[in-house]
């Protein structure tokens, strides 16, 4: 507990890969720690995580949607289905911080995980801390640590307007939860200002007409559109309250993962996530000037995608940072 004691990165990495819960908690604290010595330790720790798990295994899922759409209750229902299928689940729940105090009220842990005693479910809440476009900067490194220990890592964010979909850039598969009877998301999709998620689900099908209408509007809007990779997003309906449509939702998320694997795009997608995180992080710290110093966004992405992904995003970031500061 002492402020000076940092863990041994090799011991920690091997304990996390061995699914030790205390080790994972310690690792997440370390990844949150901004002191230089801790950053160095965190960078080494990430480097030592098993490459095959981080590049080609597990499933990193983002779930987003407007407040009140029912993300937590859907997450709860999904956890149940995944646990029945024998999968171990970690959740990163991102909540807004108070703009005045910087303090935050975190998590709806028990709404997501009613019994709260299952050791194969691990939930860490994160305050967005007023940065990173509503997605805390720690999300990507923490996702990696969780992927080393769990089969499914789900990032839940509260989104507002077209920012709702930012999480999609740092996950394998993104699920958008639409609010019945609210046309906003449909308008954003139509106007092309919101990226198309991989799976869209209308929750609360139990309320009837309004949910059915929203589903059919979404299906009409999506038409035969695909994302940049050629995936066509399904629109589903479910009810967390009744437990209906949850198996199908889990199947749809899994189908996108399989599609990436079959087309040999899975590892590239993880690499893309890391590149997105690096560029976003650089832009947060240095603005457009920083990106310009590194040759502009397109060139930067080309470089990052053209070389093997470094296991430690923190080490990679520090290298890029040093080049900006040169």
């Amino acid at each position: 507990m002492s402020r000076m004691a940092l863990p041994d990165p090799a011991v920690l990495a091997s304990a996390v890969s061995g699914r030790d819960r205390l080790a994972l908690a310690t690792a997440l604290n370390l990844l949150d720690d901004r002191r230089p010595a801790a950053r160095q330790c965190a960078a080494e720790f990430l480097d030592l995580l098993p490459a095959e798990k981080l590049d080609a295994d597990g499933h990193l899922i983002g779930i987003t949607g407007p407040p009140g759409a029912g993300k937590s209750s859907l997450t709860a229902a999904l956890i149940q289905v995944w646990r029945q299928r024998g999968l171990k689940v970690a959740i990163l729940a991102v909540d807004p911080s108070s703009p005045i105090s910087g303090g935050a009220l975190l998590g709806d842990r028990l709404r997501m995980h009613a019994s709260g005693a299952d050791r194969e479910v691990f939930i860490r809440s994160l305050a967005c801390r007023g940065e990173f476009g509503g997605l805390s900067a720690e999300v990507w490194p923490m996702s990696l640590a969780m992927l080393a220990a769990f089969d499914i890592v789900l990032v839940e964010t509260v989104g507002v307007g077209q920012k709702e979909i930012d999480v999609s850039k740092m996950t394998d598969t993104t699920c958008f939860v639409a609010q019945p009877a609210s046309g906003d998301s449909i308008q954003f999709l139509k106007a092309g200002i919101m990226e198309v998620p991989h799976v869209i689900v209308v929750n609360k099908e139990d309320i009837g007409m309004a949910a059915r209408k929203t589903l059919s509007d979404l299906r009409n809007t999506l038409g035969r559109r695909t994302d940049a990779d050629g995936w066509q997003a399904p629109a589903l309906s479910a009810s967390a309250a009744l437990g209906s449509g949850i198996e199908a939702l889990a199947d749809a998320l899994d189908a996108h993962r399989n599609w990436l694997l079959e087309r040999g795009q899975f590892t590239a997608r993880r690499q893309r996530c890391q590149a997105e995180w690096l560029v976003k992080h650089l832009r947060e710290e240095f603005g457009r000037y920083g990106i310009h110093r590194l040759g502009g966004e397109d060139a930067l992405f080309a470089t990052l995608m053209g070389q093997p992904r470094r296991r430690s995003p923190i080490a990679e970031y520090e290298a890029l940072r040093a080049r900006v500061m040169q």
Partner: peptide, 10 residues
Amino acid sequence: RDVGFEIVYE
């Protein structure tokens, strides 16, 4: 929260 702590309350 108002004095700047991150609070987990369930």
